[in-house]
Amino acid sequence: MTRLTDDIIIRAVARIMIPFIQIYALYVIMHGHHSPGGGFQGGVILGASFILYLITHGLEEARARMSELKAGIFSASGLLIYSGIGLLCLILGSNFLDYGRLSLILKVIPAQARSLGILGVEIGVGITVMAVMFSIFFDISTGGIIPEDEEIKEENG
């Protein structure tokens, strides 16, 4: 799973499929209130697209596209979006994640504010799920060995 293989068919098909999978994942996240789906499901699909890239193109290219550091930043920022919206509601004087109060900032009626608030929360959940899934898969496929450690070991020994 970690080496560059010469499977031309799989590589080309994955190369063509991955952007469409990603846009489909964002569609599932954004249309969670009209059709089945939502933050978690869309995040899983988005993570699956990156996992497909890792399987087909090898570890190094996947690391160039989405490194462990980036995955960590993404997961933290998704959580930040989620809890930020919740805290904003708390600051505006209602319960945690009570989106109705967001109408004070967004200048819309409360029902619409609820819809928008839920959309923001779903986006945060999706980003976090994607990043966490990808980093779990990354850890499994490297076997817990980070390349910096190896380099340091080689330099020392």
Partner: peptide, 22 residues
């Protein structure tokens, strides 16, 4: 609705088969 579900199913099926084969 079911078209959306079946697309996800197809994607995960494809991914699973490739992973096991790899």
């Amino acid at each position: 609705m079911f078209v959306d579900i079946s697309m996800v199913y197809a994607l995960l099926n494809f991914l699973g088969t490739i992973t096991v084969a790899k």
